[in-house]
Design a protein around this nucleic acid. Structure first.
Lengths: 246, 246
DNA sequence: GCAAAAGTGTTGTCCTTACACCCATGC
DNA sequence: GCATGGGTGTAAGGACAACACTTTTGC
């Protein structure tokens, strides 16, 4: 990229200037971000979806997205969308992949960058502004608008992979959780069932859970102990985290 | 993304139409691809770089990139760049990440999508068209133009990770290779030294190497056997490949 | 007391690692 | 014959998987 690119840019701008007489399809490339916002509630992994209001996709669900402003960093655009929808700013957010086939958006050439985020459903009430914003069980997500099914699938796979390499899951849980909650989370994300004893052994051996000396309340069975994640210790020992391998 | 997005698009187009009277900085967002092309030669991992010809980065090295055409799929743009530079079309190519800070390119707002590719140096002579296109030892890559150092670092880390999860390395080797070649490759990519016996054991136990019953020629020591990778068998057994863990 | 889930240890298997000696070739 | 790297096996230790019974609480 260099003078060649500059030449290209100048040419593109000139031709664009000539053809831009209204809303036309081939005016250039627009850039958007789409946020795949995962949450964990009722012992199930959920994702935030909204109704598409493009006629073409009437009735279908879609991801939360918006165009990137010319004066806005790409990451900032993703944080903006997340903030607008959930009110959250201090959360896990990670770029996953970029989708750029020519015909992916009916309104014209829009390349979109997918960001994955994990939030704690209980801590944040949604800004339900419009379009039936709702949490959907990830298992029931099918037939999304645009190429959003593909984007979702990619992000979900990425989540499954990352959650085994980093302690991301804790971003989805309340601050205090039982080991059963934690196990349910991993089982939901990975779609597996795990041996309870081995699961406990693995997490205790990491020595990154802090025993809060509190118990679950109002459960119709023997209450479990509550824990929190030792983010501080993890921060220091990051290098020695070798992942979870179920 | 829906009617809101369409409204945004229309607004953006109108304001753009008004301000586009020449080459200005805030005309919108341009999209480019940058290719990080890895090769393996002289027992070392290399990467293709070109001299930047922007004055600002005079003398610095940069990655190979170009703007994406409005009518061109994103992936296609990466294949085009690769083809233009190396003459190759049937190669491994993978999107890595997208870089989109506002000020990353001095000529204006350019968001770039990085693609990583692995090619076999011996099989393809470069189309050395201009700008001192050359292979650089990855260990000597520092201080690239633009944010290309960051892009390179990201891609290199990704390569180190992926090469342990998939048999990508074979894309960097000649069709016939010795086990020493293979081990050098892994040692170069991962920047480690490995035990020769354990390395052999691991690869033989995968049963994905075909013994060609040929030997190295013109080596000043006992010649090693030559092998090729069993891509066909790997294709069938993909699910059972659990990765390489050194 | 019964239903429901919490809590707890041991054993066998497999994988990984560490390690040393002889062999084939070019010079 | 000597220098160079090719080729081979074994033993110890650590991680993972499989597995059953007792405990605590709500009802």
């Amino acid at each position: 990229m260099a003078s060649k690119e500059n030449n290209n840019e100048i040419q593109r701008l000139k031709s664009r200037q000539a053809t831009l007489s209204g809303f036309e399809k081939n005016y250039g490339i627009e850039l958007s971000v789409d946020c795949i916002i995962f949450g964990f509630d009722e012992q199930k992994l959920k994702v935030l979806l909204i109704r598409s209001d493009l006629k073409k996709y009437s009735g279908k669900w879609s991801l939360l997205g918006d165009l990137v402003f010319p004066s806005e960093d790409l990451d900032a655009a993703a944080y903006r969308v997340l903030k607008q929808r959930t009110g959250l700013s201090d959360v896990y957010l990670e770029q996953v992949s970029t989708f750029g086939t020519v015909s992916r958006h009916p309104a014209g050439r829009v390349v979109t960058v997918a960001y994955c985020s994990l939030i704690n459903v209980q801590h944040h009430k949604l800004n339900i502004l419009d379009n039936e914003l709702h949490w959907h069980d990830v298992k029931s997500v099918t037939d999304l608008a645009f190429d959003h099914q593909q984007i979702f699938d990619t992000c979900f796979k990425q989540l499954q992979k990352r959650v085994q390499e980093h302690p991301l899951g804790f971003n989805l849980l309340p601050k205090k959780f039982s080991l059963r909650d934690l196990q349910n989370l991993y089982e939901s994300i990975l779609d597996v069932t795990l041996d309870r004893r081995n699961f406990r052994k693995k997490f205790f051996s990491m020595d990154l859970l802090i025993d809060l000396d509190e118990m679950e309340q109002d459960v119709p069975h023997r209450p479990g102990k509550l824990y929190k994640f030792n983010f501080e210790k993890y921060g220091k020992k990051k290098k020695s985290w070798v992942g979870i391998d179920f």
